[in-house]
Design a protein around this nucleic acid. Structure first.
Length: 269
DNA sequence: AGCGGATGTACAG
DNA sequence: TGTACCTCCGCTT
């Protein structure tokens, strides 16, 4: 689940359900218990997303900073909340809804200054209307790192994860091993613009779909996806399977402890 | 029952 | 570059 679109959707979901409400806050698992006690009975004023970071605003009491990491998950539902299991790090309960957080990399109470410091470490986020491609381009145009590595670097661009990386490079026919400084400005602008569209759709649908209408299973008369990640994609986790466009075998390789996927024919230098 | 992965990051060396 | 951390799920025995 957790790429930037998931976090922006969670911020939206929390705003709709809790903003302006007095909430009960608890940590059945225990590791956030001290902070939960401070927040219990406070008003959840707002929820914001920046890249893959979620911030729940409790006014003067501070901000809850959540990062899902690889395993973190939210369960949100209508009140009454079910009995909490012992893996729930953070439970927020309002009059009509509850939200349960499990397995996050980060769940901590921060001051406004600390929240700002986290945001300052991040590159521009395609899902934030005030952000643009320029700051990322400054880094990319000077970098010898591969574009595949740069897209995963949250200091360069915030919110892109392994699925969007693989898919956006495929959609633009870009070899993942090309150095950032070998990209043209035109190529980067096209990637950025495409990410805005893909990720906005991701927020809307709460899943990642990247296949263009003319390449869907229905349009091409091929069987629907077999993978269980939830969306319709070109290359992500399709190693060894034929490319939807050219039929070549999709390749995979480790890159910085993550699996990279690409089509060797459609994505050439 | 036990294993291996998974849409992520931070730290050590 | 490797490893530790957080949880769940599907696969194998």
């Amino acid at each position: 689940m957790p790429e930037g679109h998931t976090i922006h959707r969670l911020a939206q979901d929390h705003r709709e359900r809790f903003a302006g409400r007095t909430v009960r806050v608890s940590s059945p698992q225990g590791r956030f218990a001290d902070s939960a006690a401070l927040l219990d009975g406070c008003v959840l004023e707002t929820a914001e997303a920046h890249g893959k970071h979620l911030f729940l605003g409790f006014g003067g009491t501070g901000w809850v900073h959540v990062h899902l990491g690889l395993f973190g998950k939210y369960g949100i539902g209508p009140a009454p909340a079910p009995p909490a299991t012992d893996t729930v790090r953070l439970r927020i309960a309002g009059p009509d809804h509850y939200s349960d957080l499990r397995g996050p990399t980060a769940c901590e109470l921060l001051t406004e200054g600390e929240r700002q410091a986290v945001a300052d470490r991040l590159g521009p986020d395609p899902l934030r209307p005030e952000d643009g491609p320029d700051r990322a381009w400054d880094r990319i145009a000077r970098s010898r790192s591969t574009i595949a590595a740069l897209l995963m670097d949250q200091k360069v661009i915030a919110g892109v994860g392994n699925v969007y990386r693989a898919e956006v490079l495929f959609r633009h026919g870009i070899d993942p091993y090309r150095a950032g400084r070998d990209l043209t400005r035109r190529e980067w602008d096209a990637l950025w613009t495409d990410l805005i569209g893909l990720m906005r759709e991701g927020v809307r649908n709460n899943r990642i779909d990247t296949v263009r209408p003319e390449h869907t299973p229905e349009a091409m008369g091929r069987p629907p996806r077999v993978d269980d990640h939830g969306g319709e994609v070109y290359v992500y986790r399709r190693a060894g399977m034929p490319c939807h466009l050219c039929g070549d075998e999709i390749r995979t390789a480790g890159l910085a402890a993550r699996n990279l996927f690409w089509c060797p024919r459609c994505q050439q230098r």
